[in-house]
């Protein structure tokens, strides 16, 4: 069972405020290696902020957050946490892939350029090796014929699949998805979820912020419902999505259906 596995992400009492507004009020969450965890909840519940904390795009204000056993953004010596310098933060981020709601592809680079820039520039891998891997990744997300296309020549679904390939090219051990289908036209959602399903089946550890309940039910090992900066309910998808204990979860699900 998942509980016995080694943890990839461990969050303990994670807190985060934007000015006077506390957006994370002590989050406790474990994601085991090979697990897929879906974060659901109304907008403003803090689920995207929590995801961004995991690769240190946002700094946490309290609690402890580790990825692969390493503290995110800090180094511990005795009772003290030392904030990491930019190169160390970058090195840890390189092992975590992230997919954004609005794709954030580099518009001045082709699909291939988007996928290769990370490994070539950050990991200093040889260009030919990266190119071969990037072509294989683009084929895998079904874009073999779009290798030389620029982002503005692609549909939203195609862009998001390039973005997934770009993150995978860094050979991450953890993938973060921040509402990957929320900016897509309804008919393009399926092709992106299909790629994510494939990734989950191959055993990628994934943390997915999503509103796609069907996807969560099929793919997730665990579903976590957040509201107002706190985890309200977490458990297997059947429990949380089909038979929720908390009234707030029930109200949220009722609104979505």
């Amino acid at each position: 069972m998942a509980e016995a596995m080694t943890p990839m992400v461990e969050a303990r009492a994670v807190r985060k405020s934007f000015g006077p507004l506390e957006v994370l009020k002590g989050i406790d969450l474990d994601v085991a290696v090979d697990q897929v965890v879906c974060l659901i909840g109304p907008s403003g519940s803090g689920k995207s902020t929590f995801l961004r904390c995991i690769n240190h795009l946002e700094k946490i204000d309290g609690g402890a957050l580790t990825v692969g056993g390493e503290l995110v953004g800090y180094r511990r010596q005795g009772q003290r946490l030392y904030e990491l310098r930019d190169p160390e933060v970058c090195a840890r981020r390189a092992g975590i892939g992230m997919v954004f709601q609005h794709f954030n592809l580099f518009p001045n680079l082709s699909a291939l350029g988007n996928v290769t820039i990370g490994p070539v520039r950050v990991k200093k891998e040889p260009k030919e090796v990266v190119r071969a891997r990037a072509v294989a990744l683009l084929e895998r997300v079904g874009l073999a014929d779009k290798i030389d296309a620029y982002p503005n020549q692609l549909s939203g679904g195609q862009k998001q699949r390039v973005a997934i390939a770009r993150a995978l090219a860094m050979q991450p051990r953890l993938m973060l998805f921040d509402e990957p289908t929320s900016a897509l036209d309804p008919e393009l959602v399926g092709e992106v979820l299909e790629v994510m399903r494939g990734l989950a089946a191959e055993g990628m550890t994934m943390l997915v912020v999503t509103h796609e309940l069907t996807f969560a039910r099929e793919v997730a090992d665990r579903v976590v419902f957040m509201d107002q900066g706190a985890i309200v309910e977490a458990g297997a998808p059947q429990e949380v999505l089909t038979d929720p204990r908390e009234p707030r979860t029930r109200a949220f699900l009722a609104r979505l259906l």
């Binding site: 795009l57 930019d86 981020r93 390189a94 954030n104 990370g118 950050v122 993150a167 860094m170």
Partner: peptide
């Protein structure tokens, strides 16, 4: 330049200077 561009670059592990120069 949209802030998402810097975030995407950082999520690939680019340093601040590299993000500025390459993205």
């Amino acid at each position: 330049v949209d802030e998402g561009q810097s975030e995407a670059a950082q999520s690939l592990g680019m340093s601040r200077l590299m993000t500025l120069r390459l993205v």
